[in-house]
Each structure stands twice: as C-alpha cells, then as structure tokens.
Amino acid sequence: MSQPDPEPSASFGIVPRGGAGLISQTSTDPDPCDGLILASDLASALGVDFRLRRESTRGRLQRVSRGLYYPSARWNQLREDQRYLIRVRGAALIRRGQAVLCHHSAAVLWGLPMLVGWPGEVHLLTERASGGRSDPGIRRHALGMDSRDVTTIDGLLVTTIERTVVDLAATLDLKSAVAVVDRALYQDRFRRTLTLTTKVALLATLERMLPFRGSRRARAIIQFGTHLSGSPAESASRVNIALSGFPEPELQHPFIVDGKECETDFYWPEIDGVGECDGREKYFNAKYLAGRSPEQVQYDEKLREDGIRRQVHGFTRWPASVGMSQYSLRRRLLELGLQPGPQRALRGLERPQP
C-alpha cells in the first residue's frame, strides 16, 4: 500500500511559520498562520525558491505573494479574513520588524470586521518624509508615526486599536467604518468577545492626530458608534435606519420570556415594535451554537420570538443582506409601522472625503 505524499513543507525539511491568530478566535481555533512558508527562511538552500514554485505549479503549494507560500489543501479551506491575515503576516516577516502594519492590515490583526471584503494589498505606515510610493502588493501610507500609536501583536509592529479605528473611520465606506467603530467599542455581557477600547480613547487619539484628511468624518462616525451593536450586520442596519430618517431605536432592549431576560437588537417605543437582524453565524458558528445543533438553535429562537411577540405590537426580522440595503430595510421598517423623517447623524458622510 503506497504512503500518502508528505506536506510540501516536509519534503523540503521546512518548519512552517506559526504566528498571529485573529484576536476574535476562540482558544480552540487552529492558527491559520501555522503552515506559512517563507522562501527567505531557506536562502541557504540551493534552488529552494525554484522548488517551491514547482510545487506551486503542481498545485501542492499556494503562492500567496513573492517568496510566500502556503499548503494548497489548507488554503482552500480558509476564510477570506484568514487568507488576508496570512498575507499580512508574511509581508511583515519578510521585512523583519521594519514595517508598521496599519489600516486594513492592522484591522485583521485586531479582529475587526470588514463588510466589503479584504484588500489584496498589505498596508504599511511610514514617516511623512518617506513618501507614499508602494511596491506590488504593498500600499504605504506616509502619514507619520507617533510612538504612542504603535504596539505589537505576536511580535508584529501594528498601529494601536485607537489609531487603527481612527484611520479606518476616515477612509472606509460608511457602513464598514461604523461596523469597525462598533466592534472596537462592543461590550459583550457574555464575555465571548473582547472589549478593545472606549469612545473617549478614540476621540483623544483623533484630537492628537489633527489635522488630517477625513477628520470631521471620522469624528462623526466615532460619535455615532455604540458599545451595544452585536454584529457588523446590526451596525450596517443602524446606518441605513439613520440614513432613511427613521427614529433612533433602543438597542438591546430587555424582555422577560419564560422567566429569563433576553434582549432585542432594535426596539422603537413609538410604535412598540421590535426589529431583529440575523446573520448565518447565529445558526452555524460553533461559538454561538454552544454545543447545540442548528435545528435546536432555530427552535430556541422561535420560542424566544414567540415570547417577545406576545409583549409588543409589532415584530420583524431581517437577514444581513437586507440590513446592508437601505432600500430593502426601509421597506421592511415601513411595513413594521415606522414613519421616516429627515436624515440624521450621518448626512453627507456616505463616502470618504476626497
């Protein structure tokens, strides 16, 4: 009986790189960076880069970027954020501690969400005098560095959570920017998610960075942020509720169902109506299943919804895709009985300032 081929790294006598895992992972999650292969680690081995490229051509290794490889079988099983994390860590390791990761590349290390997907480029912060010229796959931001804005995560230089959030609030699309701020502020009463910072700390960092492009927009988005938004889809829904001019909802409003306290995503006392925004993770992510089957979670949620419906005048539920669409969510909330008024809070901030 033939033996299975070894991992490509084993065939070279390579010890794959481990390293930074997403902060949002649980302790039992495997580190996606375990398996990273840098050709520069093997510079003394004759022809090793050729051999790595040959393995890539054969489909056993994924060429992530120049000099950076990963086992193809594992790469195909990774989420988009995990793939981007590998690109980021590889780029930082190649530069041997001389690069400060910022913007999206800092966000993936801090476990911040990205509603519109992760970029193909790794973002680096540089001094203003160095200019912003970028190499293939690398985008440099010549914004200047303050030592108070730099920290380390698993040995990698990265902008602090406050600097990262301010940078992204000034540059991302509106829904993504709000989702980033909300995640950084989020306080989970079940302690499943780490609290990263406070609004006071974010605004203090913004003030110290002045003047910079997009500062007015970043301030407004941070002020709009909340520690009560439980998911990126809820954050996107909050933005569309505001842009449509609907009354500001109460977040995480408590109800008692069968003797237990539960909270709703959105509650409007004006109409005694509840709105719930659900993503797939609620029914399929092991962290939220807590040992239950998806069918059991769905049944438990039905009992919870029935208990809340008995106590309110109206109830509606929408998926993340509806929360992301201002038109679709507007129609759903009109059916609930809400009446729109003038836009509030986020008027004119839909796109970053040029």
Rank of each mutant, 00 (worst) to 15 (best):
S321Q: 13
I221S: 05
V257T: 13
T198H: 01
E281Y: 02
S235N: 03
E270L: 10
K287Q: 07
L303K: 15
P232K: 10
E261A: 09
S244N: 15
P294T: 09
L336F: 03
E234W: 10
E335N: 12
L303P: 02
F212C: 10
T226K: 12
D265P: 03
S231D: 03
T205D: 02
L334S: 08
M209Q: 10
G291Y: 01
L202M: 05
P211E: 09
R331N: 09
S328Q: 13
H313V: 07
R280E: 12
L202G: 08
F212A: 01
I271Q: 04
V200F: 02
P319L: 10
D300T: 11
R304W: 03
D278W: 10
R213V: 13
F212L: 05
G314R: 15
G337Q: 08
E248G: 07
C277A: 11
Q298S: 15
L329H: 02
W268D: 02
P211N: 06
L203V: 06
Q298C: 07
I221E: 00
G314N: 15
K282N: 04
M324W: 05
S231Q: 07
G291T: 04
A290M: 14
D272L: 10
Y283H: 11
Q223H: 11
E248Q: 12
E301R: 15
E305M: 07
R330Y: 03
R309T: 12
A320E: 11
L334T: 09
I222Q: 05
L228C: 09
K287I: 07
K282T: 05
G259W: 00
R330K: 15
L336V: 14
L329Q: 01
Y299M: 11
T264H: 07
A220E: 13
E234I: 08
E263L: 07
W318V: 15
A236S: 14
S237E: 01
F246C: 09
K282F: 08
F284N: 08
K302G: 01
R304D: 12
G273S: 04
E295G: 14
L303F: 06
S328L: 14
D306M: 14
S321V: 11
S328C: 08
G323Q: 02
S244L: 09
R304K: 15
T205H: 01
K287P: 00
